[in-house]
Design a protein around this nucleic acid. Structure first.
Lengths: 223, 223
DNA sequence: GTGCCAATTGTACTTTGGTACAAGGGTAGT
DNA sequence: ACTACCCTTGTACCAAAGTACAATTGGCAC
């Protein structure tokens, strides 16, 4: 009897997802959470779930922070990210951070079911149209940014988690606590990250990385 | 014979501004630049101009960096910021950084002329409708951000310039060079900034401050 | 003038941040 | 078995960041 956790602060969304889960699994035990703390508690009590459907934005979560935390604390639990947005960059980022799938809320029910089955079978899912459409190059001047993006993609999963926490302004000590590793290890990761991104301070790394998430909206432009 | 510098990378815009300048001043000497380096060179050779119309985005400038540099290197030259955007936050920020005015490119010619005259007379200009409309509170959840904004507003002008450069990931040493002050002084400013913003590292300050500029677009939302 | 404050700088000190080098354990592929 | 890579940690060291205290200058207001 598979245990599936649905974490979303919107009851309606939880309901819709629950239906999909019931279609995709055989007699699932569905556990619902409205906030991240609940997810953590649940996972601590049951050890690991067979699947976690995690909304990107919830009380206590903003962006990928929740994903990062869950993935590092409970690596055994596969996570599928649920989101209202479907920016290719977000999709890539989520998968890079260890998510097994990315399901936009606009996805038709039938496809959600298929996606969940796919993940349950060990696959990874992302919206079809975006899957290959993403490498479409912008004629504009985002060459430099794409260079940087390429470098970000050379980071290892753990390094991405560290970068993610760097982006919240945390100290090495805090990052170490969050990921439950030694501060020395964090330093090693940070050092490696700085080299790979070709910057010379954590602040620069944060500034550069921050832009990647903004560029989606930056076309509101200027001139 | 007043010397006015028009700095914008777009020839058409320079032309339009030149017309306005000719209406607002008596026999002005108009100097045009397409990039920031040209402005610096010009100012170095003539010492100071009577007015500088500075576009926010130009080759060599991204955001307020150019304004900050010019203001610190040539404090005697009054600067009016030209921009395609007119986000109230940008307006406030520009004025806080020492600009004597903020003119959106959508402003009608007649009003541009009036604005330039106003600044020439020692006043400061900003778009009317925004002037008082800005304090309109968003019902959403940007309470925390506004708290932070309040704190940013307690920073002194020089401290804002430092914060601006912090946001580019620069080291204290580099900031000192850019503003032509001692590194010790930069440290003093940074220390003060961290206290006022109630954060405990430059990286956090950058992260928080960075959000202020994004919130304008953040309503593309999530959920 | 007196007082307030921004800005500047210095000295001295503590804490973070970051690098370099070395090393053990785990996993996956050849 | 061997290689390669990731993750982990430690030690040691140097640079950058931040704090605390003290002092000078200059502008502005009362």
């Amino acid at each position: 009897m598979p245990q599936i956790i649905i974490a979303d602060d919107h009851p309606m969304v939880r309901g819709a997802l629950a239906l999909a889960v019931e279609s995709a699994f055989d007699q699932p035990e569905i556990l619902e959470c409205a906030h991240l703390a609940g997810v953590t508690q649940l996972l601590e009590s049951i050890g690991a779930a067979d699947l976690l459907l995690l909304d990107l934005r919830m009380p206590g979560v903003d962006g990928f922070e929740g994903l990062v935390r869950i993935r590092s604390q409970f690596p055994a639990t596969p996570v599928v990210v649920i989101s209202a947005l479907e920016d290719p960059r977000l999709v890539r980022e989520a998968l890079a951070l260890g998510a097994m799938g990315f399901i936009p809320k606009s996805t038709p029910r039938a496809e959600i079911v298929a996606a969940l089955s796919l993940v349950a079978a060990g696959g990874t899912y992302r919206p079809d149209d975006l899957a290959l459409a993403e490498p479409a190059p912008d004629p504009k001047g985002q060459a430099a940014d794409d260079d940087f993006l390429q470098r970000v993609l050379t980071l290892t999963p753990q390094q991405r988690r560290v970068l993610q926490l760097l982006g919240t302004g945390k100290l090495n000590k805090e990052i170490a606590y969050d990921l439950d590793i030694a501060e020395t290890t964090v330093k090693a990761h940070v050092s490696s990250i700085l080299h790979k991104l070709r910057v010379y301070s954590r602040t620069q790394a944060v500034v550069m990385a921050g832009r990647l998430h903004l560029d989606s909206f930056a076309d509101v432009a200027e001139g």
